[in-house]
Computed example of a mutant assay.
Amino acid sequence: MNSIKTTLLLAALTGLLVVFGNMLGGSQGALIALIFAGVMNFVSYWYSDKIVLKMYRAQEVGPSDVPQLYSVVENLARKNGMPMPKVFVINNDSPNAFATGRSPSHASVAATVGILRLLDQDELEGVMAHELAHVKNRDTLISTVAATVAGAITMIATMVRWSAIFGGGMRGSSNNRGNAIGALALAILAPMAALLIQMAISRSREFAADEAGAKMCGKPLALANALTRLHQGARSMPLRGGNEATAHLFIVNPFKGGMTSLFSTHPSMDDRVRKLRELSRQMA
Rank of each mutant, 00 (worst) to 15 (best):
F36R: 03
P104K: 12
D270P: 02
I115V: 15
L230S: 06
N253A: 08
A187S: 07
A234G: 13
I181W: 04
A30W: 00
S261Q: 15
A164H: 02
L227W: 13
S261W: 13
M170R: 09
G26I: 01
F42K: 05
A208R: 11
N75W: 06
R205D: 05
F263D: 04
V73T: 02
A212W: 08
E60W: 11
A58G: 06
N253G: 05
T144P: 03
L31Y: 08
S280F: 08
T246A: 15
V145K: 02
G218F: 14
P191Q: 06
G172K: 03
S264H: 07
G242E: 07
D271G: 10
K219Y: 12
F263M: 11
F88T: 00
D120F: 10
S27C: 03
Y47P: 01
S64H: 10
Q28S: 12
N179F: 05
L8C: 12
T154F: 02
S64L: 12
N75K: 14
L31Q: 10
L9W: 08
A245F: 14
I4L: 14
L189A: 14
T265H: 09
L10N: 07
G257M: 14
V135F: 11
P104L: 13
M128N: 07
K136E: 10
Q68D: 08
A208Y: 07
F250K: 05
L196N: 07
M82C: 05
T260R: 15
Q232C: 13
D65F: 02
A11P: 04
R78L: 07
V66E: 03
M159Q: 08
A200E: 13
L239G: 04
K256C: 09
I90L: 06
I251C: 08
T265C: 12
D210P: 00
G81Q: 12
S143M: 15
K256D: 13
Y45L: 05
R229Q: 14
M84F: 05
S94M: 09
S261M: 09
D49S: 09
D93S: 14
S236N: 15
L24V: 01
N175A: 11
L119S: 06
T158M: 08
M55E: 08
T265M: 11
I181P: 03
M23T: 12
L221R: 15
Q198T: 14
I115G: 03
F207L: 13
A107Q: 06
L17D: 03
G25P: 00
N179H: 04
M23K: 09
Q198E: 13
M128C: 09
R161C: 10
L24W: 03
V18K: 08
G218E: 07
M192H: 10
A193W: 00
V66I: 03
L221K: 14
G168V: 06
N96W: 01
A190R: 00
N91P: 01
A234E: 14
W46Y: 11
L221V: 14
S71M: 11
D120L: 14
V160M: 01
L16F: 04
G26W: 00
T100S: 12
G25Q: 10
V73Y: 02
A247Y: 03
T246K: 11
M192T: 06
L53W: 02
I251Q: 07
H134D: 07
T246M: 14
P220E: 03
A146H: 03
D270M: 13
G167T: 06
V87A: 01
N225V: 15
I251E: 12
S48Q: 10
I251K: 11
L223M: 09
I142N: 00
M55D: 08
I90V: 13
G172H: 04
Q198G: 07
P67F: 01
